[in-house]
Amino acid sequence: MTVSLQDILRNRVKEKLARDEVVSSMMVRLVRGVEIARIAHTAGFDTFYVDMEHCSFSLETTSQICMAAPEIGIPAFVRVPANTPEYISRVLDGGAMGVIAPHVRSAEQAREVVRHARFAPRGDRSANGGLPHLQYRSFPTAEANAALDAATMVIVMMEAVEALEQVEEIAAVDGVDMLLIGTNDLTAEWGVPGQYDDPRVAAAYQRTIDACRKHGKHVGIGGLASRPDLVEKFVRMGARFVSTGTDLSFLVAACTAKAKAVAALGA
Rank of each mutant, 00 (worst) to 15 (best):
Y205Q: 00
Q206R: 14
Q206N: 09
Q206E: 13
Q206H: 12
Q206W: 05
R207F: 07
T208A: 00
T208C: 03
I209G: 02
I209D: 00
I209V: 12
D210C: 04
D210N: 11
D210F: 06
D210P: 05
A211H: 06
C212H: 00
C212K: 01
C212I: 09
R213N: 11
R213E: 10
K214L: 13
K214S: 12
K214H: 14
K214G: 04
K214D: 07
H215P: 05
H215A: 15
G216Q: 05
G216H: 08
G216S: 09
G216A: 10
K217H: 03
K217L: 00
K217S: 04
K217C: 01
H218E: 13
H218C: 13
V219I: 09
G220C: 07
G220T: 06
I221E: 03
G222H: 01
G222Q: 02
G223P: 03
G223A: 04
G223D: 02
G223K: 04
G223R: 03
L224S: 02
L224I: 03
L224T: 05
S226W: 11
S226R: 15
S226G: 11
R227Q: 11
R227S: 04
R227L: 05
R227A: 07
P228A: 02
P228C: 03
D229L: 04
D229Q: 06
L230F: 08
L230K: 13
L230N: 05
V231N: 08
V231Q: 13
E232C: 06
K233H: 12
F234L: 05
F234A: 04
V235P: 07
V235I: 14
V235W: 04
R236E: 14
M237W: 11
M237A: 15
G238C: 02
G238Y: 01
G238W: 03
G238R: 00
G238D: 01
A239P: 07
R240M: 10
R240K: 14
R240L: 12
R240T: 11
R240V: 04
F241W: 15
V242H: 03
V242L: 08
V242R: 01
V242E: 08
S243F: 05
S243Y: 02
S243M: 11
T244V: 12
T244W: 07
T244P: 03
T244R: 12
T246P: 02
D247N: 10
D247I: 08
D247L: 04
L248D: 10
L248P: 00
L248Y: 13
S249I: 09
S249H: 07
S249A: 14
F250W: 09
F250A: 15
F250N: 05
F250C: 04
F250S: 09
F250T: 12
F250E: 05
L251N: 03
L251W: 01
V252L: 15
V252S: 09
A253Q: 14
A253V: 09
A253Y: 08
A253S: 14
A253E: 14
A253P: 02
A254L: 09
A254W: 06
C255I: 14
C255S: 13
T256V: 11
T256L: 13
A257Y: 02
K258D: 14
A259P: 01
